[in-house]
Structure formats: C-alpha cells, structure tokens
Design a protein around this nucleic acid. Structure first.
Lengths: 155, 155
DNA sequence: TGGGGTTGGTTGAAAATCGAAACCGACTCC
DNA sequence: GGAGTCGGTTTCGATTTTCAACCAACCCCA
C-alpha cells in the first residue's frame, strides 16, 4: 500500500498499455492492413503465444477488435478501433524520428496527405500562431486531471 | 543468415532502440528535468542495474549524454542530446492519446505553446491545406530509403 | 580519526517473461 | 481419407528482470 494504484502521467499510463517490445509493431501492422493472426506472426517473427497474449490485451483495452471474416470454420481478423486508429500520431512521430536519426534521413516509407499529396511532417503545430513548435518552446502546467500535489515541470 | 540484418521500417528501427518498457519513461524524466541517476531510479522504481543498462544504451545511441556536474567526487547527470529532444513529438503524441483514452479526457498535465499559451494538440497537420489530417486521409508510398521489393501499403 | 550520509553504481540469486517447437481442433480441398 | 490452412494452446529451456546486498569515493561533522 505504499505506491498509489494510479500513476499521474498520461505517458506512463499509455506505455503501461502499449509500451512493450511488440505491441506497437502489431498496431503498425494493423495500420498497414496486416490483420490476420498468421500474417502478423510471420511478418513480425513473434512467438505465437505472445501474439495471442498481446492481441488479447489490445482487445481488452479496446484498441483492437476481433471480427470474424468467415464461418465454417470461424476465422477472425483484428481491426483497429477508433482508439487504435488514434494512435496514428504517435506512430507517425516515431516513424519520422526513425527516418531522421536511424534511417539516415532517407525514409523507407513516406506519408502523404491524400487530398493534396503534401508529405507529412509531424511536429507540434500551434494552430493559433500557425508555426511549428520546437521542444524548447513548450511549457507544461498541471491540467484538470491532476490528482494532487500541484507541480509544474519545465525542461 | 536467414533474416536480413536491417529492417526496412523506421518505426521498427526506432522501437528497436527505445521500444522497451523503461526507455521512454527515462526520456520523459529527462524532459521533465529529472536528470540524476538516483532521482530517475526512485521516480520510476526501476532496478538500478537496468537503469545503468538503459542509460548506457541511450548514451550509446547518442540520445543522451553523460555530463559531470561536480568534481571531487565526480558525479554525472544525463542530458538529452538534440536527437533526444527530437523525441518530443512522439512523447507528446503518446501523452495526448493517454489524456484522451486512459485519463478519461482529463489531462494530468497540459502542454502549451510558450509564445501564445495555446494548448498543444498533436495531430498530423497539413501545412499546405492548413487542416488536421485524419488517419484515414493518410497514404503511404515507398520513400528514398526503401531497400528493395517495392511495396505500397494502405490502411 | 572515525562514524554516518550521499551518489552512482556492481554483483548474484530468485522470479518472471520470452522463444521455439510440438501439438490440436475445425474445417477445407482433392 | 490424407494433406493443408488457420488460429490458436501447451511445454520447457533460455533470457531478462527484479530485489537485495554490497561497494568505492567522497563529503560533513565532531
């Protein structure tokens, strides 16, 4: 009873759900249209029991839903829910970072806006000033969901 | 010799570096100004040998640098490099997702643009059309860093 | 001089987790 | 009726993580 049951940080809460070595890769595959157990398994090279566990956890967290795609025999595929699709910005951000710093600036895949073909960057973008916001121009303050112990952090 | 040594996806390459259960939490602490070994250790509750390993890996990946903050005895603290600071969009994206879906819409901490105080959202934002881009309005295409086997994926 | 405290670790053993492979049930197609 | 596919479960050895103890270097204080 020494540690509080709920941690007061949305990053940590999120990583508690999806922050292991496989889960985000599974979500990435679902974004790419790889939706079947066996396809994901061979694409990632993940052990089948782990894939079973991770998919069950994702379904449990309502990030993924299991839908039958045929009867006789019943076979299932996995699809992102709205929550799951909303992980898109996080995946895009990780991808852009990797493009820049691990892939040497040469993106294996680039993302574009359907409507106009603009290549998507993903920086925090201030919709008031209409400029990209650098990490050093970001402040944090306690929000409405803060549990207790007011505390502001600043880099 | 059966699997290629390099994988052709910036998301996977990134997660290979920072995609374990602790690393992004360490980076988050560094963003918040928690920079000393013992402070990080007590803040996260991570085992000390693991923290040693993870910090060494981060330094090795040039995401973090170890700088002495005193002599006699020499004591070190850990600071984000530019690469490390550029993980900011990814952390912001994970945090916003957590705010919405794990913290019930009530952010424990909110991020604001220094210059104008606007609360930052983080969606892919098309700088040409000047609109937020929904996951379903994003296409992908092979980029200049693609290794081989042309292949386009679409959700 | 000597004891206690702080920081940034290392070491070793137990516990939890992972990975590889074998197996399985329901159904297909041939 | 034999082989194949799909979506798993079971088993078990290997790896990783956790927990606790220990440690070296230096400080402060008397």
């Amino acid at each position: 009873m020494s540690t509080p049951p709920v941690v007061d940080c949305s990053i940590q809460r999120t990583l508690d759900l999806i922050g292991d070595r496989w889960t985000l890769l599974i979500v990435r595959d679902l974004f790419r249209g790889v939706r079947r157990f066996s396809r994901i398994q061979e694409d990632l090279g993940i052990a089948k029991n782990l894939l079973t566990d991770r998919l069950a956890a994702l379904v449990d967290a309502d990030i993924v839903e299991k839908v039958p795609y045929q009867d006789r025999p019943v076979r299932y595929e996995y699809r992102l829910t709205e929550r799951g699709r909303d992980l898109s910005p996080a995946l895009v951000a990780l991808m852009r970072w990797g493009d820049r710093y691990v892939s040497g600036g040469l993106a294996p895949t680039e993302l574009v806006h359907d409507d106009c073909g603009t290549r998507l960057e993903l920086q925090p973008w201030c919709t008031t000033c209409n400029v990209p916001v650098a990490p050093t121009d970001i402040s944090s303050r306690p929000g409405p969901g803060r549990l207790s112990e007011t505390e502001a952090a600043r880099d």
